[in-house]
Design a protein around this nucleic acid. Structure first.
Lengths: 183, 183
DNA sequence: GCACCATGTGTACACTCGTACACATGGGAT
DNA sequence: ATCCCATGTGTACGAGTGTACACATGGTGC
């Protein structure tokens, strides 16, 4: 009966949930599948997360770190003179280049907010964070539009089995950025 | 046992599927729920649509007409001198203004393509159609970007419980459109 | 008129699901 | 040392699911 008293169990369940969604999609997420993946009894998942929505919120919050890691690893917009459009296009490229499972997972959880109000604050929080980051190098309106366009470009690639064209992305992202008045 | 021999049954099942997704979400879609909504026996839905994917493809194809109707009703870009950005922003406004159920339904089916390869050709087809329409008033690259940005703006509104700001949309859409060389 | 077969119907099976609940355990407050 | 209760475990129930299949019916082509 080992593993009684397992203080990290909650976290392990979240990790398992993310793996499950990655492998079988959001539709394959259930208390049971997560329990099996995390190697804990059914009652344990229902104890820590009364509803699947709760579990999804936790998973989405954690999954959001995926893209954030890509940004951080690239030194995220530290250089104020960097070409903003090129940098953003680069983020997308890198994010889309890796294992698509992770990308699909993050988007699937993100898009689930469409039907699950419980997820909307988390989705909004994430968008906000990204907008704020971009807004450090331009005005808020432009930042918001840049993030929207990034989302749209990613969606087109993911939903239509298209290929990501980084040069195209950089070009159209640049168009949104108003010319520097100071230079 | 009236209603034997019902040549429009297939269509009625599709209509029922759309109502079901609108009311209960994609997760509530099953052969049985559709059968109940369409008032046909279970065997009938499984006969016409072996898999739910098949049914979704048919439903998505039909749902795509929703936005197309908004466009058509507005005389869709007939006037070549019209302000393209304003027109596109207007489409979104009108589409988002009506009953959100329809909007959510269309997006939910559209986004389902992320995990269901069977839906991707239909999603691609729809995007293509919209891009072609917009491309009649600008170049293909710009058209593609405009559609992407429209998608991104809609998503931000829908996923984050935001409000649609048409003036903002018009402004940023306009930025993507290159200045007319001829004028 | 007849027979074929696309279409429609009813039922059953095995499976997964969320939920509920009774019970075990043992860390930490007292 | 003792007790409480957050945490963990095991099991059961009813509802819903996809799938399969045997059978009914009646247009359509002959």
């Amino acid at each position: 009966m080992a593993r009684r008293y397992d203080p990290e169990r909650r976290q392990r369940i979240i990790d398992a949930a993310i793996r499950v969604v990655g492998e079988k999609g959001l539709a394959g997420l259930s208390h049971r599948t997560v329990a099996a993946e995390a190697d804990v009894p059914l009652g344990s998942t229902t104890y820590h997360f009364k509803t699947l929505d709760e579990l999804m919120v936790a998973a989405l919050r954690q999954a959001n770190e995926g893209f954030a890691k890509v940004i951080a690893a690239r030194g995220g917009l530290e250089d104020p003179r960097a070409d903003l459009a090129a940098e953003l296009a680069g983020w997308i490229g890198e994010w889309l280049a890796g294992d698509r499972t992770g990308v699909e997972l993050e988007y699937e959880l993100y898009l689930a907010a469409l039907r699950r109000p419980a997820l909307r604050p988390v989705a909004a929080e994430w968008t906000e964070r990204l907008v704020d980051l971009v807004a450090r190098h331009t005005d808020p309106v432009t930042a918001r539009a840049l993030v929207a366009l990034m989302d749209g470009i990613c969606l087109q690639v993911l939903l239509t089995d298209g290929v990501y064209d980084e040069a195209y992305a950089r070009e159209v992202l640049a168009r949104i950025i108003p010319p520097r008045s100071g230079a």
